[in-house]
Design a binder for these strands. Sequence first.
RNA 1: GCCCCGGUAGUGUAGUGGCCUAUCAUGUGAGCCUGUCGAGCUUGCGACUCGGGUUCAAAUCCCGGCCGGGGCGCCA
Length: 603
Amino acid sequence: MKRTHTCGEIGAGDLGRDVCLQGWVRFSRDHGGILFFDLADAYGTTQLVYDPEDVPDEAGKDALEKALDGFTRESVVSVGGTVRERIPGTEDPRNPTGEAEVLVKEAEMLSPSHPPPFEIGEQKEHLLPAEETRLRYRYLDLRRAEMMRVMRFRHRLLSLAREHLDDRSFLEVETPLLTRSTPEGARDFLVPSRVHPGSFYALPQSPQLFKQMLMVAGADRYYQIARCFRDEDSRADRQPEFTQLDLEMSFVDREDVIAAVEALIAHIWKGLHGEALSTPFLRLGHEEAMDRYGTDSPDLRFGLPMTEVTSMVADAPYEIFQRVLAKKGAIVGINVKKEDGADAVGRNEIDRLISWVKRHGLGGMTWMKVSSAGLESNIVKYFTPEVQHGLTEAMDAAEGDLLLFLAGSREKVRETGGLLREKLAADLDLIDEDKHQFLWVVDCPLFEKDPVSGKLTALHHPFVRPAGELSPDVLGESYDLCLNGVELGSGSLRNHDSSLQRSILSMLGLSDERMEQEFGFFLEALGYGAPPHGGIALGVDRMVSIMLGKESIREVIAFPKNKRMHSPVDGSPTPVDDDKLSELQLMSLAIDDLDLDDIEDLE
RNA sequence: GCCCCGGUAGUGUAGUGGCCUAUCAUGUGAGCCUGUCGAGCUUGCGACUCGGGUUCAAAUCCCGGCCGGGGCGCCA
């Protein structure tokens, strides 16, 4: 028997037709004579029915019944039969195939299944087995229609991206997975070389240098759906291997790249959601993002910005503020607007917020209520009417609002204020889960100074073009894309001038010798006519998970690693045989009976 | 490296010191049932993460390990 139809396409139009269906037995219902089976495949479910009083071939009846007896849950079977209309009143309106059924005349077991460790049928989220179990039997988990829907959504997103970029002369190029380990950035996954004992490839953390060399090559516009690898601890939105939609363009300025990315995302959005996405996206300077929201990827689905009031209250004889000012600290306010639910924040709630703030390392929090008579609280008396007026103006305070103030070191206040903002939004239910708020954060500093060593490190990566004359404080020609407070992608214009690139690497502490050793090949490439260029890399896993409202990117990756970077389905990583190691001239230090003398003997 | 939460039949759960020979559902085995659709009915099966401790008594309390998850650090 050969399949003639899928389980999702049988309908009223097929009545009377002889068909062959093949798929998985999802549920069966035995009424003591008449039998029902739900046969499922990737496209849908069709009801099979066996009726002992309606068997065309009496001689084959026993064999047919015997075969059907073996149709256990999740076994793969092949059936031949006739499509017929269901008895009136027994149609299933929830199922697109629910008006028809297939009367089984032939049945064959293709592949039996053990009883599955959990149920494959559609079920409520809270009835799902633990993620651990789902990942161990991922091939069964993926069999669920919801997971198939996720995989299709992801596929569609990538198709739409390809379609859009192909139409705009972007060239899809595969860059190597076996690459050079470079000193900057995350920890590398290393691959030992058999041919060059003691030498290693690194799996790419991103195709950054290769795509830039493609620009030198004159490719003009490049993209790649690129797997990237970073050996750092995972999070709900971080896996050791992940996918970037990576692109790069030549002869462009920042606006060109931003516009190209907005058009790309709008195209994807329209294709997946059917509705136009409003562009251009909001934009925020990095410094303002930090000042107002305490993070470089703020969630602008809600308000509650911070307002710095340090200078405004500088002369107020309020001791707590004065102590902070003496230590060159900062004082910021957050206005919980009446319309955001300030009334819901009573004295008890404020006390809870104060202890929450203390747990985050600040001394406390002060507050004022805005009433018709003006500001009210036990500290208002320390502020002159002019100062009160200034605060009201600066924080856009109106009657019914609640003003919260944090004081401490600038970094701590920013950080805690940002977290408080998110906590308030969650507590007051200000986040519209259906809203998708894109945001560009632009003008990030090129460098970050290590507070302990004073050493400069690159905030993004060392190839970002400075927006002005090179100095430790210079801003970069950068643009980070955020969606709902999550960093979706990071892009910039790059340095196409090799001497500028050298200066930056040198400011990052690389000696000429090291620079030559680690990046010489790339600097050399920049010396052979590198066009001005820039690009971006978008996190595909994050984009898909946010668009589908999933809590973790593991939900949108077919075979993800778990928190401890184990692959539950294949059990990797595993130890390997000693002969494999010795072929690579390697010896593990992670073995129980290791005798250090053995190593010394080898030297 | 650190902090927090969790671990009870195959799966999801109830059980906060003795009422536990551990609840319920689902699953699974057997039987019944001719229009169901996550069919129904009867009945059998099946579990306290591991080690140590406290106690007359531990699924329950304490300590440690293992496993899973969230986070900090880390992630140019």
